[in-house]
């Protein structure tokens, strides 16, 4: 059930990103909203759920983009690794560090996009305003990233409650996991904030 939640939220974020964000005509370039889901999973959910979401949502986002196939899957996997590594040293889930945590995800994504241009035989070229775009994305991530991560977390809690009402036995285990999550690679080092 919890995997279903990740897929639903992932696809909802894709639709938000591809339909609503362009219409809103926000100043500057918006960052990839899927990163908020990935970082929520890195922070609060077990590693296997994060890997699953990175592969499925990455493949879906790849197919919605005109960039080279695999760029988003790669980004999400690297965000997962970097997130788990950061959690070994910092409690990134707190209010102060969470926006920075989302912003580092945005930087990693742009580095992967830039790296795709440097691959042997690559025909992908970066846009002329790549650096300005990165700056705008980081700013948006700092301003809204933490709210989005916390929003997904609240939604997931609500989802668990709904599932608990519908399928009591299965979601008892889910809820147990939600209350005591692991940090995947960072076993025994990080502790979750609230």
């Amino acid at each position: 059930m919890t995997y279903g939640f990740h897929i639903i939220v992932g696809f909802a974020l894709i639709i938000l990103q591809t339909c609503f964000v362009p219409f809103a005509a926000l100043p500057g370039d918006m960052y990839d909203l899927q990163l908020a889901l990935m970082l929520y999973l890195v922070l609060f959910r077990p590693m296997r759920e994060t890997i699953f979401a990175a592969v499925v949502i990455g493949a879906a986002t790849d197919s919605m983009s005109s960039g080279p196939y695999g760029i988003y899957s790669m980004t999400y996997l690297l965000v997962l690794v970097s997130g788990a590594w950061i959690l070994r040293f910092l409690q990134a889930g707190n209010r102060i560090l969470l926006p920075v945590f989302v912003a580092q995800g945005v930087v990693i994504e742009n580095l992967v996009l830039g790296g795709a241009c440097l691959l042997p035989g690559s025909v992908v070229r970066p846009p002329a305003d790549a650096m300005a775009s990165l700056g705008e994305q980081v700013l948006w991530a700092l301003l809204t990233g933490a709210f989005l991560v916390r929003g997904i977390r609240l939604l997931h809690r609500q989802w668990i409650r709904w599932m608990d009402a519908l399928f009591p036995r299965e979601t008892e285990r889910e809820e147990g996991r939600a209350l005591r999550p692991t940090f995947g690679l960072a076993t025994g080092t990080g502790t979750r904030s609230a």
């Binding site: 591809t18 362009p22 370039d29 919605m64 983009s65 005109s66 960039g67 988003y72 970066p126 994305q137």
Partner: peptide, 13 residues
């Protein structure tokens, strides 16, 4: 019905 999710690429659906 949709636009590219990345600001790096410009495409529509």
């Amino acid at each position: 019905i949709g636009r590219d999710p990345s600001p790096w690429f410009k495409s529509i659906t």
